[in-house]
Design a protein around this nucleic acid. Structure first.
Lengths: 335, 335
DNA sequence: ATGAAAGCGCTAACAA
DNA sequence: TTGTTAGCGCTTTCAT
């Protein structure tokens, strides 16, 4: 079933059918006649043929480190709904934290399979920057949430530093002065910024920071966080501790370990997470956390990418959305 | 940068370059020469052009009701890793439980954008069956986990009925005889089968079933489950109750409501979930649940689809993988 | 308003 | 082993 079959049956040229299909100017009667035949024959244009000709696929890649983190689902929903509205399809890529995989996925741009990329994974190694520079992909990539600060790259994110500052200040406001940072041993901008926010909050409250205040996980997983919290508890006296975990995943694992030792929350340990994933509301106790506007992050990222693709705004855009501290029982004295 | 540019620079015909790119027989020296030029020019074949010619895209669609359910992440990992190994890319589709969206996604087959579909969403309405029949898509679709029983459609799943039977039998074995089913008010095969397993277990233990034993949620969400469990608790005396929730999402929401009322678990309420999502291990108490082999379900689904695409086995395959009951504290008397 | 024809970049059948 | 050439199915320019 090709455009030619439709043309013949409708008694017009294939150019006319193409015009009808693409909503170009065609006489009303002709249009109706052609549309009738199209639906009779159940004709659907061949995606490859039209993409090849238009040198545009209307597909974009969304690349995440690991889809298993529910934090991404709201973002994906935002991207998915918005992109659909504009006639785009999404390819989802999982990098599994690997730079090789990321580079591999970026070749989809070279293949002309995708028109652009929304990147939730970090841009690290020189290799990746070089590729972006050499192939001039500055207008084909928008970073979302995580970002690499570069004069020519756009991103949509939140103010991670400020959010962390507020989270830690909250711990201080409920009387904690011994505050630990549960973080990741990975070189992500958001990790660095959240640590900076943590440090600033300590400083502004005249609390000293010691390297031992920082617990670094090699891997972002509930189990791993649980393990590290068990060790943490075993290795010191717990009296009036505050924990700032840079991800709900970490906070939830930690919470489990704390509960199992029957340590009073928030009296002896208060804990704040980050991301406000759905599960953080139903842990026991419920988890105080920073809510990121996931859906909007996704939606705005797509719109930003679309501006690049359509060449409506080729200037780098740096968009910061609002976060919100959600106070729940893990830091609530009234419990 | 086209294949022709490579051909000219290498002093061969474009056919030869094509052969090198596609790993066809070419004299070793020619091959090396061409490969050198390819990497010099940084040539990547145009996906659309080769797909158009080969009438094959090496892309498949994976369609889920809602990516926010972590149950899907292991399955997606299985599909993703396996498909990558065979040179396929994945498009992820979210139907958001809507048949219209599903139908919409299936048109990607008509557009020749995808070679096949792994369906984790249900096939319901006549419309969908008709489409599959009319377009003869029997060999382009493999169902995974959820399935519609049809003589000509393949699927990869577990024995939902047996798994539910074991879960409920377990509740009975720890002394519960008042057992409620927390389920979904949706016409999914897996929902029906899990109910049948539940009913069989009751029957085999001479426990009567009353319609009031079944609590149906309109929507699969933690919040919704929590709300329903709150109503449940308010409306009856809780003494020695067992709950079988057909999804961990439901069980986790319910658990939160139970905890908030300080009802003893498992003494007064014991609860079993389904899916063994990561969070079920760190709820308080940890959740007894049925573990599905998510990664394998995904991997096998892809391999099955590949057999259809490659016409290696066009017979419908009905593959049942093994599940496992994971007993944790929500049903463990020793707690 | 419509048609004819060139060509998007590639693969594969056939020829040499 | 390699080259020539005919499309894959569509969009778009240029003519009419």
């Amino acid at each position: 079933m090709r455009i030619n079959d439709v043309a013949k049956k409708a008694g017009v040229s294939l150019a006319t059918v193409s015009r009808v299909v693409n909503g170009k100017k065609v006489k009303k009667e002709t249009k109706e006649k052609v549309e009738k035949i199209i639906s009779e024959l159940n004709y659907t244009p061949n995606f490859m043929a039209s993409s090849l000709q238009r040198t545009k696929s209307n597909m974009i890649l969304v690349l995440v480190p690991a889809i298993s983190n529910p934090y991404y689902s709201a973002i994906l929903e935002g991207i998915g709904n918005t992109s659909k509205k504009f006639g785009y399809n999404i390819i989802l890529g999982n990098s599994y934290w690997s730079e090789e995989q990321l580079l591999d996925y970026l070749t989809l741009l070279n293949k002309r399979l995708i028109d652009g990329v929304i990147l939730l994974e970090r841009i690290s190694k020189k290799k990746i920057i070089d590729k972006i520079k050499n192939e001039n992909y500055y207008n084909k990539i928008v970073q979302c949430s995580e970002y690499f600060e570069d004069n020519d790259l756009s991103y949509v994110t939140i103010d991670h530093k400020k959010a962390a500052y507020e989270a830690v200040s909250h711990l201080i406001s409920i009387g904690k002065r011994e505050i630990y940072l549960f973080s990741l041993n990975k070189d992500y901008t958001y990790v660095t910024l959240r640590k900076e926010g943590y440090l600033d909050a300590l400083k502004d409250n005249k609390i000293d920071f010691y390297p031992s205040n920082e617990i670094l996980l090699d891997e972002l997983s509930i189990k791993n966080a649980q393990k590290h919290m068990e060790i943490f508890i075993r290795s010191r006296e717990i009296k009036n501790v505050g924990i700032f975990a840079i991800s709900d995943i970490i906070a939830i694992g930690a919470l489990k370990a704390i509960k199992e030792k029957n340590i009073k929350i928030p009296q002896n340990i208060a804990i704040v997470g980050f991301d406000n994933i759905e599960f953080s509301a139903v842990t026991d106790p419920s988890l105080t956390t920073v809510s990121q506007p996931g859906y909007e992050l996704g939606a705005e990222s797509f719109k930003c990418l679309l501006r690049k693709i359509n060449e409506e705004n080729l200037l780098p855009e740096k968009i910061i959305l609002q976060h919100e501290l959600i106070v729940r029982d893990s830091t609530n004295k009234i419990v």
